[in-house]
């Protein structure tokens, strides 16, 4: 996986103006199981695919509550993700201690990005190998951000990260224009559909995905399995008739994705094929 002589430490530039170590960290995000997020004007829904390392183990938690008004979904090194969510929780608690108000989401995201950036400029540090989808609600409405190991952050209407996330992105790209005025329930449904896209043929069950919601009058919470199952069942049954029409479209998107990502990037996708989903 060594590209050349410029990738042994984070702070060394390649002549082409790249920092390979940082790019490898971003690669770690692509290897992790998928996480998706989407938002309306009032709600944010986060979702992720639960993948167990072995049939003998359970999966790792990939969605974290940060505060009543902020949650994250992660892809990449879960351990790094936990550390960062703990940092975010701390920031929220400290802010509300001082001001008795909720920390604006955008500010937390910038603080998080700055923290990640520091790791790209210190020889004795390692960039965080995790991508975070930060969903939150504040005075200016609902927000969804993506935080990258490089220290970059972006605001999205809907986004997906992690392995085979391109399929989910394609699904979201096709539908995002309606999201702003979507109802909460439609948003959850779209989240599950997007997650299903990343499964590539594997059937979507409530045990291989986690969905969390937050919004106006609804503090961040992870939906319990029974609720998710109910929602999946409702559209699986309804979709039985319609779905064939939708399927080719998604498949086309998948191919496009593979083209876009190109050789090296695509390896992430192939490594976790054949990993059995964990049924708990």
């Amino acid at each position: 996986m060594f590209r050349n002589q410029y990738d042994t430490d984070v702070t060394t530039w390649s002549p082409a103006g790249r920092l390979f170590q940082v790019e490898y960290a971003m690669e770690a995000v692509k290897q992790g199981s998928a996480a998706i997020g989407l938002r309306s004007k009032t709600h944010v829904v986060l979702g992720c695919v639960n993948k167990a390392n072995s049939e003998l183990s359970s999966h790792q938690k990939k969605i974290f509550k940060v505060d009543d008004h902020i949650g994250v979904a992660i892809a990449g090194l879960t351990a790094d993700g936990r550390v960062l969510s703990r940092y975010m929780r701390n920031e929220c608690i400290n802010y509300s201690f001082t001001y008795e108000a909720q920390l604006p989401v955008g500010r937390l995201v910038v603080q998080l990005a700055d923290k990640a950036q520091v790791c790209t400029q210190r020889s004795w540090k390692r960039p965080y190998g995790v991508g975070l989808l930060v969903g939150g609600l504040d005075e200016s409405g609902a927000h969804l951000y993506y935080n990258c190991p490089s220290g970059n952050y972006f605001e999205y209407q809907a986004f997906a990260i992690g392995s085979r996330s391109q399929a989910a992105k394609t699904y979201l790209e096709r539908r995002f224009e309606n999201f702003a005025d979507s109802s909460r329930d439609d948003l959850v449904k779209d989240a599950l559909m997007a997650i299903r896209e990343t499964l590539q043929g594997e059937t979507l069950t409530s045990s291989i995905c986690t969905v969390a919601v937050l919004g106006v009058g609804e503090p961040f919470h992870i939906l319990d399995q029974a609720t998710v199952k109910q929602i999946i069942d409702s559209f699986e049954i309804a979709g039985e008739q319609e779905d064939p029409a939708g399927e080719p479209d998604a498949a086309a998107g998948q191919e496009a994705a593979a083209d876009e990502q190109g050789g090296a990037a695509d390896q992430g996708g192939s490594t976790d094929q054949g990993v059995a989903p964990m049924d708990i």
């Binding site: 509550k65 505060d67 929780r89 608690i93």
Partner: peptide, 9 residues
């Protein structure tokens, strides 16, 4: 209050 939030997390 803060300790309880941490406990809940």
């Amino acid at each position: 209050g803060a300790r309880h939030l941490i406990y809940q997390h």
